[in-house]
Amino acid sequence: MKAAILSAFGKPLEIGNVPDPGIGTGEVLVDVVAAPVLSYAGEVFSGARRYLLPTPVVPGCGAIGRVRAVGPDATRLQPGDWVFCDPTVRSRDGADTPDITLQGWSARGEGGEKLQRYFRDGAFAERIRVPTENAAAIGPIEAAEAGSWCAINTLLIAYGGLLAGGFRPGETLLVSGATGHFGAATVALGLAMGARRVLAPGRNAVVLDDLRARFGDRLVPVRLSSDEAADRRAMRDAAGGPIDCVQDFLPPSVPASVARTAIMTLRQGGRAVLMGGVGMLGGEDLALPYPWIMRNLVTVRGQWMYDAAAVPGLVGLIRGGLLDLRQWSVTAFPLADANAAVAYAAADAGPFKLTVLMP
């Protein structure tokens, strides 16, 4: 089969032939119809991000495709079924604290690297082998819709955070980092899940105006300054009531003070979920005041990726018409133009934009 191969970090992807993956018990073979090209793929392939990804490898994180063959223990999936190939592969012998690898992308820790040795190659290919539980049925779609369905890759991460934070209909959600790729997806999800109001603080006026135009009055933009106290007041005033949940997707380039300002808008008993990159490039610590957390009964938790149970819930939001994938604009490239797709994804990064390979 044809695939895009990363032979070594710092080299362009090579388009060539690799053996068809075989499958056994607990595995599914999927014909890839569309695979997302993440905006920072070039940084991964150059080695700048130092991801745990052994080369040579067929990269690619997630896909939409059709089942080609199933293992002997599959009881519901059938050849021809449309599925989302969930890249978050979990070890099966550690139910409480599973090791995780992101197939075709990276791994977490020693156990994740061990898992990666088998589920190694990703979706930049005509076919991909995934664990049976990672072939999530999405129901019938038209082939032309497959690119839009690749938005699941981003949405699942945002949805996993909202589930971890116990977000409920009727609550007010503040999305810290709302003008970014994952933050904007969180805005869309919060509204789809029945938020009373979603606050979108940021400095990018163009993106804030776009969010308001897309989602209407329940989306409230808040222009940030460099004054923590003033920004906290502005967010609380815009909420028009208690702020129940803060989800943070701020990137590593943003100082911790921006995240702290948002979190400290929470009501008594509020929850904050940290999913961004603050502090990963050094700088000041988050430094939330101990007395404030304790006296206000605030919960602060981290969340990496999502639980497997998030997948059917997200598909249900889409199928129920609560979440409209047409919000995302899609630019598609053939597999032969994988390097051009990587460059385009970096240059055209932003909220509600998708670059995909269509083998």
Rank of each mutant, 00 (worst) to 15 (best):
Phe352Ala: 11
Pro251Lys: 06
Gly109Met: 12
Gly10Gln: 10
Gly350Cys: 08
Leu199Pro: 00
Phe124Leu: 05
Met1Lys: 11
Val258Met: 04
Thr88Glu: 10
Leu335Ile: 09
Arg267Lys: 15
Phe9Met: 08
Met1Tyr: 10
Gln116His: 13
Glu43Met: 12
Val58Asn: 02
Val246Thr: 12
Gly47Glu: 04
Leu29Phe: 07
Ile293Phe: 11
Ser39Gln: 12
Arg301Thr: 14
Met358Gln: 15
Leu38Arg: 05
Gly112Ala: 13
Val207Ala: 03
Leu156Thr: 00
Val356Ala: 01
Val70Asp: 00
Val83Phe: 08
Ile64Thr: 04
Gly170Ile: 08
Ser253Glu: 14
Leu224Gln: 03
Asn134Phe: 10
Asp121Arg: 07
Ala164His: 03
Glu113Ile: 13
Arg108Leu: 15
Ser148Leu: 07
Ala229Lys: 13
Arg108Asn: 07
Ala213Ser: 15
Ile128His: 01
Pro289Tyr: 11
Gly350Asp: 05
Ala143Thr: 15
Gln116Arg: 11
Met264Ile: 05
Leu286Met: 11
Leu102Gly: 01
Arg168Pro: 05
Thr299Gly: 11
Leu162Ala: 05
Leu102Met: 13
Leu281Lys: 15
Arg68Gly: 08
Ala256Pro: 09
Cys150Arg: 06
Lys2His: 14
Val28Asp: 00
Thr55Gln: 09
Arg108Phe: 14
Gly276Trp: 00
Ser46Tyr: 04
Trp149Cys: 00
Pro56Thr: 10
Ala349Ile: 05
Gly160Lys: 06
Leu317Thr: 06
Ala8Phe: 07
Ala347Asn: 09
Ala135Gln: 04
Gly183Met: 03
Leu286His: 07
Leu13Asp: 03
Leu189Thr: 06
Gly122Val: 01
Ala259Phe: 04
Met358Asp: 07
Phe124Cys: 01
Leu77Cys: 13
Gly71Arg: 08
Arg120His: 15
Gly160Glu: 05
Val37Lys: 01
Ala164Gln: 09
Tyr118Phe: 15
Thr299Leu: 12
